[in-house]
Lab assay of single mutants.
Amino acid sequence: MASQGTKRSYEQMETDGERQNATEIRASVGKMIGGIGRFYIQMCTELKLSDYEGRLIQNSLTIERMVLSAFDERRNKYLEEHPSAGKDPKKTGGPIYRRVNGKWMRELILYDKEEIRRIWRQANNGDDATAGLTHMMIWHSNLNDATYQRTRALVRTGMDPRMCSLMQGSTLPRRSGAAGAAVKGVGTMVMELVRMIKRGINDRNFWRGENGRKTRIAYERMCNILKGKFQTAAQKAMMDQVRESRNPGNAEFEDLTFLARSALILRGSVAHKSCLPACVYGPAVASGYDFEREGYSLVGIDPFRLLQNSQVYSLIRPNENPAHKSQLVWMACHSAAFEDLRVLSFIKGTKVLPRGKLSTRGVQIASNENMETMESSTLELRSRYWAIRTRSGGNTNQQRASAGQISIQPTFSVQRNLPFDRTTIMAAFNGNTEGRTSDMRTEIIRMMESARPEDVSFQGRGVFELSDEKAASPIVPSFDMSNEGSYFFGDNAEEYDN
C-alpha cells in the first residue's frame, strides 16, 4: 500500500469516517454492505422474486439502478423543472426478469421514488447511507470498465484509444464523492478537466460571474484530485501550473494530454476495490451473516471469500459463452479491467482472455432483445487465490505491452514486471518541450526514458491461498515475461453508450 500519510484510507472515504482504527473501519464497511443486503432482500420480497430470480444479476442491476435514481437529487430536480413526455419524475423502474413456464419473461416495473427511498433508509437504520449508494455506483463503473473500451470518449477529448488503461471510473457520476474520486484513473480526471476547458473556450461566460466562481472551485478541486494521483514531483508541479492558470485554454489542454500520456509509464495511484452486485450481499445477509459484527474490507480476502460461497446467475444470449460472461463479471467484481492478464489468470486459476476474444456482450439486456431465446446460467466467480488490492500504480518500471492497449494499471499487489510499449508511448511525445512547463516536461520525458521494462514492481508481494486469511504465506508467482498482458488488445469491444 502506498503510505497513507495525511490521506484517509478508502474504507474511511467509503464510510465518510473520520480517523478510525482498522477494526472500526471493518465494522463501518460491514455496516454499509449489510445495509445493501437488507435493502436487496426487501426489494425481492416487494417484487415477489423467487430465490433464483433474486440471484439473477440482471435483476440486481435494475434494483441497484432504481435506488441510485431515487437518490439522484440533481436529476430529480431537473426532471421536475423540465417535464418530458412519458417520463414521470417521481417514478423509477426498469426490467425485471421472471421464469414463467420454463421461459424467461421481461416485466417492466415502476415504483415511486419516495417508496424506494423509504425501503433503502429502513434497511440502513434510517440513514441515507450515501456510502452504500456510492458502492453500487463503483460496481456499475467497474462493470462498464470491463465491458467497454471507451474509444470515442478518448478520441473526443484528444487522447489515444490505446490509453484505455487510464480510464478507470470514466462512467462514474460526478456525485460519487471521495470514494469515487479515489477509483478514477488519470485519464478519467484528464477527460473531465478537458471537457471543462473546452467549454470555457467555447463559452465566454463559463468562468464568469457567480456560476463561474463555482465552476472555478470545481476545476481547482479536480486538479488537486489529479495532482494527488501522480507520484513524481515534476508531474505534480505541472498540475500546479494547470490549476493556477488564470484562464484555462489550449496550453492547459496540451499540458493535460501530455500528463495523461506520461501516466502510461509514470503511473498514478488509483484505488481498486472489489464492489459486488447487491444480489451477492442480499443472500449472505439472508443466511444470517452479520457483516457489521464480522467486519468487512473491500481490499482484502473478504470479497473473494464471499464470491467463493455465492451463487449468481445471468441471462445468456443464444451465441454467448457462459464462461466468457463469467470472466467479464469476475473482472468487474475485482475492479480488474486494466490489470495484467498474466496476473489475473494466476489468481483466477483459469486463463483470462483479452476482451476481443470473449464471445459475450454486456450483462444488460436491451429492451428490444428477444426473450424467447434467452437461457440462463451460473456465473463462475470463484478464484484459485486471493491478493491484496493496490492503491498505487506500482513502481515506475515497465515491460512490453500489446498493440491495442499500451500499458496497464495494476489492481493487485503482486510481484511482476509491468508491461508497456515504450516505443509507441515515446513516439507520441513530439519533443515539444517549450513553453512555461518546459523544464517539467524535459524531466518527465527523462524519467520515462530511463524506466526499464525488466524491473520488478511490488517486490516480494504474492497471492494467498483462500485458507490464508491473515495473509501469512505469500506465494510469489513467476510470469512468462514475453507473454501478452493487455485486456483490450487489438480490440473490438462495443462502445459504451450512456
Results as ranks from 00 to 15, higher is better:
residue 289 Y to P: 07
residue 357 K to A: 01
residue 319 N to Y: 06
residue 290 D to E: 13
residue 129 A to H: 11
residue 308 Q to H: 14
residue 454 E to V: 12
residue 181 A to V: 04
residue 437 T to Q: 13
residue 339 E to G: 08
residue 211 N to P: 06
residue 78 Y to S: 05
residue 80 E to T: 10
residue 208 R to E: 04
residue 181 A to R: 10
residue 248 P to M: 04
residue 381 L to P: 10
residue 260 A to C: 15
residue 329 V to W: 02
residue 34 G to Y: 05
residue 362 G to H: 05
residue 244 E to S: 12
residue 292 E to G: 13
residue 444 I to Q: 06
residue 277 P to L: 08
residue 221 R to D: 09
residue 332 A to F: 00
residue 321 N to V: 10
residue 391 R to Q: 04
residue 50 S to G: 15
residue 7 K to I: 08
residue 484 E to K: 12
residue 243 R to K: 10
residue 187 G to E: 12
residue 162 R to K: 09
residue 154 L to G: 00
residue 57 I to H: 01
residue 82 H to K: 02
residue 434 E to C: 03
residue 330 W to D: 01
residue 133 L to D: 03
residue 262 S to H: 08
residue 240 D to F: 08
residue 76 N to G: 01
residue 67 V to E: 13
residue 367 S to G: 13
residue 17 G to M: 05
residue 43 M to D: 05
residue 296 Y to V: 05
residue 303 P to Y: 08
residue 243 R to Q: 09
residue 438 S to Q: 15
residue 254 E to I: 06
residue 271 A to V: 02
residue 173 P to M: 04
residue 121 R to S: 14
residue 473 S to H: 12
residue 264 L to P: 09
residue 464 F to S: 06
residue 155 V to L: 05
residue 351 K to G: 08
residue 87 K to E: 11
residue 77 K to A: 15
residue 122 Q to Y: 02
residue 140 H to K: 01
residue 479 F to M: 14
residue 7 K to M: 03
residue 60 S to N: 11
residue 495 E to W: 09
residue 172 L to H: 11
residue 466 L to M: 12
residue 310 S to G: 14
residue 249 G to C: 07
residue 98 R to H: 15
residue 202 N to E: 00
residue 462 G to P: 01
residue 377 S to P: 08
residue 25 I to V: 14
residue 332 A to P: 03
residue 360 T to G: 06
residue 453 P to F: 03
residue 221 R to E: 08
residue 131 A to C: 15
residue 110 L to G: 03
residue 22 A to Y: 04
residue 391 R to M: 05
residue 321 N to R: 13
residue 88 D to G: 10
residue 441 R to Q: 07
residue 216 R to V: 02
residue 483 N to Y: 14
residue 172 L to A: 13
residue 243 R to P: 01
residue 270 V to Y: 07
residue 251 A to M: 05
residue 189 M to R: 04
residue 65 R to H: 08
residue 323 A to S: 07
residue 328 L to N: 01
residue 352 V to N: 04
residue 467 S to N: 15
residue 120 W to E: 04
residue 377 S to I: 13
